[in-house]
Computed example of a mutant assay.
Amino acid sequence: MTKLSVNVNKFATLRNARGGNNPDLEQVVRDCEKFGAEGITVHPRPDERHITTDDVFNLKKVVTTEYNIEGYPDERFLKIIEEVKPAQATLVPDPPEVLTSNAGWDTIEHEEFLKEVIARIKLAGVRVSIFIDPIPERIEGAAKVGADRIELYTEAYASQYHSDREDAIRSYANTARLAKDLGMGVNAGHDLDLKNLHYLKQQIPFLDEVSIGHALVCDALYLGLENSIQRYKRQLV
């Protein structure tokens, strides 16, 4: 079964736009899980433009499924992981000023850094996933530095899906199989939606998890949150 982890960053962005606590992020998380989400993802950036550090700790008390905290593994992030001890830490190579995650790790160039970071996170008993492009050498590098899983960065797949979905998926399916053969789990995320998700699942049937936020929240404006989550889950069957 491929789990759906709902990224709740956009709910926090909406809350922060007016101040106060509307929408109530803790209630959003409870409802996402009640409506069928098998995980909750947050990305606490240093500028706290959506998820705040307080949110990360408060949601730890609320999440009953798998809690996934993603971000750049600086000292601030690592201390959060060590204190909160989520089910999974997803390492993303984005600097603080970028709008959203826009590239995967070069696991060859950053081999020593990633080895040290991953070893430290594993000491806290937390599973480690690396955000990565579908490049075989970098997948092999992920295994070498000790990652438990990879998260395939799927923007390129989503961009090409409507023009040539077979070509769009090819590198992803090949590198997913390579990761599996190397003993790692396979997650996926970025720009996945109700149009392209089912084909991704068909071609990579052993996907462990997809993390979806922006598209799901946009769909929820029209379809409602419960209906949207259920529709995304049906794409993963």
Rank of each mutant, 00 (worst) to 15 (best):
K122M: 04
T65G: 14
E112Y: 12
A37T: 07
S228H: 02
K3S: 07
P95M: 12
L221K: 04
E82W: 06
I139H: 02
E116T: 07
D106M: 05
S163T: 11
G213F: 03
I40T: 07
V145S: 03
D94H: 05
Y199R: 02
P136V: 00
H162I: 06
P86D: 09
E112G: 00
A173S: 12
Y153R: 06
L152H: 03
K180Q: 13
D47P: 07
L123T: 02
T65R: 13
T64M: 14
I135V: 11
F57R: 09
A37E: 09
H198W: 06
E48W: 08
K122I: 01
L207E: 00
L207K: 02
K115R: 14
E151Q: 12
D164S: 11
Q88D: 07
T52C: 14
V28E: 11
R138T: 01
E209I: 00
A215V: 01
C218A: 14
Q235F: 08
Q202E: 15
R15D: 13
S171W: 05
T107I: 04
K61C: 08
V62R: 05
R165H: 14
D191H: 14
G183Q: 09
V98A: 13
R127V: 13
E116V: 04
E155Q: 10
K60G: 07
V29K: 01
N21A: 12
A124Y: 10
T65M: 15
P134A: 01
V117K: 15
G19Q: 09
G185V: 03
I150C: 04
Y232I: 00
R127I: 10
T107A: 08
R15P: 11
D219I: 05
F206Q: 00
R30V: 04
G36H: 07
L192I: 08
R120Q: 13
E83H: 07
H198T: 02
V28Y: 14
S129C: 10
S159C: 10
P134Q: 02
V98T: 11
H162M: 11
G146L: 09
V8P: 06
P93M: 10
E140W: 07
P86A: 07
K195C: 10
D54T: 06
G39R: 07
D54V: 09
V92W: 02
G71I: 01
Y72F: 15
D167S: 15
I130Y: 06
N22H: 13
D55E: 14
D191A: 11
L178H: 01
R177Q: 12
D181Y: 07
K115H: 11
V217N: 12
E26T: 00
V217H: 13
L99A: 13
N68Y: 09
W105I: 01
K10H: 12
E66Q: 15
V56E: 12
T100R: 08
D148N: 12
I40W: 08
V28H: 13
L14N: 03
E70P: 01
Q160N: 14
S101P: 02
E151T: 03
A215R: 03
L99Y: 12
I132P: 03
